[in-house]
Nucleic acid binder design. Structure first.
Lengths: 156, 156
DNA sequence: CTAAAATTCATACTAAAGTATGAGTGTGTA
DNA sequence: TACACACTCATACTTTAGTATGAATTTTAG
């Protein structure tokens, strides 16, 4: 019994506080309403109590703002695949030679214009290759393409 | 005394708002009390208003409670590459905490819009951070930023 | 407390990236 | 030889990225 009380003392405390509050309200109502012009005090008390109630409610009931921390769990790739280029993955994705060239230059951080100049083709050609690469890799942007292809070991 | 006032000017502001509210209440009091037996409604309104006030005050004046959620994300690493983050390099480049966050999300291949949504800030803010990152890293594009920061060991 | 740094955001641009579609040209192979 | 396939390129368009500038707040550090 004593342990139960100790265990739930917080609940008991809140419960009895609420009861006390209600009792106080009742008392105040009778006490002040018999006096003329005491309504202000009564209302003031009400205001105070319910302000406190609002504060208490908010503190108790607001959900804590969740802060997501991404912990990076290191997963080491098998030693053979780490440094080598994954040829089978390239074939699986059906990436052509030219597309791989463009992909590698992309990974160096080059713009489409720079890639075009480097490969002596037009900007439009590079854009076409890029679009085909993104479709084959199932990504939306060049940054994703670089990230994914590095992860898959397609490029160094 | 003066310093106290300056220090708690916000509280004083809220205090005067409260005074204004009380004045309003006084007005309401006369409005309602001309009607007979309207006291209950009046008191109810008071209770509601001040509960709301309490909630508002608490939300305004307390720091948001944070609840940290740890999410594990698998990071594939080449076996031989050192997985440590080069802290001294970060300091040398004077990259702020937020800029590092943006940089990391960039490296995941996320668009500015996605980063903005992820960090609960506007697109313009992400663009500002991006520009600052590029300037500090002395690069022109996000792909270069990712490549260089990975090479320098700033990000994983 | 105060100054500096960091964070946020807006507006108004320009530049680059990406999409969709169609088409011409070689090239290796069935 | 025919034909799929890779490579090339154009036009026209939409979307995203990036720059420049100014400013309001908030945090941080001395």
């Amino acid at each position: 019994m004593l342990t139960w009380i100790r265990k739930h003392k917080r609940i008991l405390l809140y419960g009895s506080s609420l009861a006390l509050l209600l009792f106080l309200l009742r008392w105040l109502e009778f006490r002040f309403l018999v006096l003329s012009h005491a309504i202000d005090i009564y209302v003031g008390a009400i205001a105070l109590m319910f302000t406190a109630l609002g504060i208490w409610l908010t503190l108790k009931l607001t959900r804590p703002k969740t802060h997501t921390v991404i912990v990076e769990k290191e997963v080491y790739l098998p030693a053979e695949t780490s440094s080598e280029i994954n040829q089978s993955e390239i074939e699986k994705l059906a990436l052509s030679r030219r597309e791989l060239e463009v992909l590698n230059l992309m990974a160096q951080g080059m713009s489409n214009k720079e890639i075009a100049d480097g490969l002596f083709v037009s900007l439009n050609t590079v854009k076409t290759h890029s679009s085909n690469i993104f479709e084959k890799l199932d990504v939306k942007r060049r940054t994703q393409a670089v990230e994914k292809s590095k992860r898959l070991g397609i490029i160094v």
